[in-house]
Each structure stands twice: as C-alpha cells, then as structure tokens.
C-alpha cells in the first residue's frame, strides 16, 4: 500500500512539474525594454524570445493594437506618449509600459539675412518669432523641419 501512495505522489509531482515547465517554456520571455521604461529616443529596441508577435497600444485594453512580427533586433519607431505592450505566442506575456518622453528642441543658425530655425525635438512646434520685443509671426514646424526667417528671438513650444 505504501508503494502505491509513493507512486501516486511521484506521478502527481512529476505531472505538476512538467506542466509548470511547459507553461514557462511556452510563455514569451521578455528581455527588453524593462517595465516602465522611459526614453527620449523614439526608436525602441525590443528583445523577446518564444513569441510570434508584439502588440503595442496606447490603451491598456489593447482595443486598437499595432502588431509587429517578432524578429532579432526588432526596433520600432514611436511618437511621444505612453504605450502598453505585450508579446504573444502560445501564451501571452505580461503587459509592460513604456514612455517616449516629449522633447521641445530648437536649433538656430545664421543664414544670409535671416536665420535657419530647426525643430530638432520630437513634437510638432509652434514657434513665436520676435523682432526686438515685437511678435512678428507664429509658425508651425514639423519634427525635423526648418524655417528660414528673420527675427531676433524664437520661442518654441508644443503645438
């Protein structure tokens, strides 16, 4: 009788261990980026194993996710904002968040009679152009766009 109980226990333990191992084996392994990752760089490198797809959404319910095929060195370009992401394979992974921080940045260079103002940040800008203390114009600048303009002061803020 004792042998039977020992065999009961052995089969139960082995079965449970095998199931735990299988679930672990089939669950995507997320290496990078870490949860709550924050960066100014819009290009995010993902490192994931045991997964077929990567879902990214700005909504935790994943109602309108963008799906990417997982591959080595998967780098995704994202606009500033907070994102929820998870890997999907045989099983789904945990949901992680990442934030691309918004950045206002201006570069200025003298060109002929005026100035070349470049939006070197990652958000669309409104640039107030002053000549002395007088506001002479407000211009919109896309990311990477430059503006050839005359003025003595340029103030850039998010649109």
């Amino acid at each position: 009788m004792e042998i039977i109980y020992k065999l009961d226990l052995a089969i139960g333990v082995v079965s449970l261990a095998a199931l735990i191992f299988l679930v672990g084996w089939g669950t995507p392994l997320i290496i990078a980026p870490l949860d709550d990752y924050e960066t100014l760089d819009g290009n995010v490198l993902f490192s994931i194993e045991n997964a077929d797809g990567l879902l990214i959404d700005d909504n935790i319910d994943f109602t309108t996710p963008v799906e990417y095929v997982v591959e080595d060195g998967l780098s995704i370009s994202l606009e500033p904002g907070k994102y929820y992401w998870k890997a999907v394979g045989i099983f789904g992974s945990e949901v992680r968040t990442l934030t691309i921080k918004s950045k206002v940045s201006l570069e200025l260079q003298k060109v002929d009679e005026g100035y070349d103002v470049v939006n070197s940040g990652n958000v669309r800008l409104n640039v107030d152009v002053y000549n002395g203390s007088k506001l002479v114009g407000v211009r919109s600048l896309d990311v990477g766009e430059s503006l050839d303009v005359e003025g003595t002061k340029f103030v850039g803020g998010a649109e």
Partner: peptide, 16 residues
C-alpha cells in the same frame, strides 16, 4: 529677447 548671442544656438526641454 533684445540680447544677442554668439555661435550656433541649440536648446531643448523635456517634457513638452
């Protein structure tokens, strides 16, 4: 705004 400065300017701030 009346001040003038020398060399190429570059300035940024985060978050927007």
């Amino acid at each position: 705004g009346l001040f003038l400065i020398s060399s190429v300017c570059a300035l940024g701030i985060t978050p927007a």
